[in-house]
Amino acid sequence: MSGDSGIRYISHPHPVTGVTNSKLGIWCFLASEVMLFGGLFSAYILLRMGAASWPEGSAILNVPLATLNTMILITSSVTMVMSWASLALKDFKKYRWFMAVTILLGLAFLVVKGFEYAHKFEHHHTPSTNTFYAIYFTLTGLHGLHVLGGILVNTYFLFPGSALWKKDPDQFMGRIEAAGLYWHFVDLVWIFLFPVLYLL
């Protein structure tokens, strides 16, 4: 039992399922996200198969910048794990440090992405140019929104949300784990997007 709501398995895992509510919830959410991006990926495949010609991603997109962004996101996934691990080691200071780095890396990703977008717009390459740019901007834009969402959630857990650590460290760790799972998912989506859009 936890809190005054009487709802069980908020901080401690269910003995049979082995997970807390938030962990099961975040997995359900990610399953739904898979279907969302799956829908867009299948749209990509259908459009590409039906297209008379399809531009070479590497020829018109900035591969080095995207590679840099891939590195940034992978690193941020690592720091996200480190922040959670610091909590497991009861080192709250380190947690804040790693969390701050994760957030900054997320922001760095968005800044790089912003440069890429600005460059495209300068050359009048907009979503309406052709279906390649349409799906490129839609997929990366939606992914960018997910990154932004992750940054906001992580910022909440860095500042006001971290008060929970004193009250119920287990629940707080559960929340960071859920936020981490989400962050890894966002990372994973990028790892699919990068080759599909930039290389293939």
Partner: peptide, 14 residues
């Protein structure tokens, strides 16, 4: 609801 709605979300975005 969890698994069937997101593709419509994708379609709506498009």
């Amino acid at each position: 609801l969890l698994l069937a709605f997101p593709p419509l979300m994708a379609a709506s975005v498009m």
